[in-house]
């Protein structure tokens, strides 16, 4: 099966990103394909590299980043939601005249069309949110 996952809440604030991570791992372990993970609303905060949780806590952004590296996942942050919340890649930071970017490796910023296209291409679309 081919999956598109949508994640609508930020890490730590809500369990949805944790649940989606566990789901993605379980699906990959069973030989399914994750076609795309689309981060929307505050979910875009899953893509920051400037997160420094206490040492005994999980590192959600890093876990997504590493899972993407291992399985060549397409992790997409919605550009409109990201602009509102201060998530930038280098190109976007330059375009907006910002002094820094903060996106973690393995994520890319793109448009909402990626969510719809993901829904069309995947066999199953799952939403994780609040």
């Amino acid at each position: 099966m081919k999956y598109t996952l949508m994640i609508n809440e930020g890490p730590y604030q809500h369990q949805s990103s944790d649940t989606a991570l566990q789901f993605a791992r379980a699906a990959l372990e069973k030989g399914h394909e994750i076609y795309r993970v689309f981060f929307y609303h505050d979910g875009v905060n899953n893509g920051t590299r400037l997160s420094a949780p206490p040492q005994d806590d999980r590192q959600i952004q890093k876990e997504w980043s590493e899972l993407a590296k291992q399985h060549d996942l397409d992790l997409v942050i919605c550009i409109a939601a990201a602009q509102r919340r201060g998530l930038m890649d280098a190109d976007e930071a330059k375009r907006q005249g910002m002094d820094a970017d903060n996106i973690i490796e393995g994520f890319r910023i793109s448009g909402l069309g990626q969510l719809i296209e993901g829904g069309i291409q995947a066999d199953r679309t799952l939403v994780f949110g609040d």
């Binding site: 929307y40 448009g111 909402l112 069309g113 719809i116 296209e117 069309i120």
Partner: peptide
């Protein structure tokens, strides 16, 4: 999202 979906 709904507005974008119209393009597809």
């Amino acid at each position: 999202v709904v507005l974008i979906s119209a393009a597809f």
